[in-house]
Amino acid sequence: MTGNSAVGEAAIRAGCQGYFGYPITPQNELTEYMAAHLSRRRGCSFVQAESEIAAINMVYGASLAGVRAMTSSSSPGISLKQEGISYLAACELPAVIVNMSRGGPGLGSISAAQSDYFQATRGGGHGDYRCIVLAPSSVQELADLTHRAFDLADRYQIPVIILGDGMLGQMMEPVEFKHEAPEEPPVRSNALRGAKGRPSRIIKTFTSKPTELEELNWSLFRRYQLIKKEETTCETFLVEDAELIVVAFGIAARIAKGAIKNARTAGLRVGMLRPVTLWPFPAEAVREFAKRTKYFLVFEMNMGQMVEDVRLALEGKGEVFFYGRPGGVIPTPSEVLRVISRHYYQEGLR
């Protein structure tokens, strides 16, 4: 199954009842999968919207009405969705947004890239807010994290972004789905469904009193602290005796893994830390490694974005190298191995 289709199937099995999208490469298979499969399900709706802006606002509407809803796009389209994502965050509404990102800036390329890291992890739209950002690195993980994304969105009443890339979306791998689609997906208890047997509800943020909005910001940030504590996730690979830790996420981590295996064969003690949640970033885990080793190599398919979070986490304690290929160029494991070896020997490790 392609990564894009796997997200669609996993979303349906997570009880997603509304998909709203707009065509953009390289994520069209997901929109098409939902058109074929979600639209036929009882009580579910699929709309090909007139724009990415309309699509995210339809997600906002469906979320207001209490159902699990999602949209997907790729980098330029995700830029257009930022207005809606800010409103979702402000109104404390759950939603899942998939970004099968591509090379930028501008129209860019349709090849896989990781240059939307800042946009995803810093909120992306206007105002002080965060989205949970999940970064899968295989088709199986895309499926698993799609399910987790819906659960997290509901638990914390927050928009969740799945930051994939064109390569993950397009590639085919075997995938196992661990859940069956629910017969009657639950409706959120605080939904807008008409004031029947209860006082009318208002979902809004606009206020003429700055202190009211300040209180909303504080309450959001208290929740963000809780998410940091409870949900920060990372994977480690061959780190026990590692003298150099590669930090990479998503498809770059997949490439780095191949490079690290070969480095190990050559006797280099190299391991990897792969953040699964980009926000919250596993800063604590990075700091832990700094107690054992000094050397970190951050590898990203961009000009260096996550590397800033690694440096912040280390607070000047480690030596951080960076290797990046932007614009949709996909480096090979042997290219990454050369970079690993260069830093390894230059620092006199071994």
Partner: peptide
């Protein structure tokens, strides 16, 4: 003023928000 369920919309997006609500909950007016 309106004592019914209400939600704010971004400027211009009312029809899209209303679409999402109505599709998710067709019983609503």
């Amino acid at each position: 003023y309106f004592d019914v369920d209400m939600a704010e919309s971004a400027h211009g997006r009312g029809a899209a928000v209303a679409t999402g609500i109505k599709r998710a909950y067709p019983e609503a007016i």
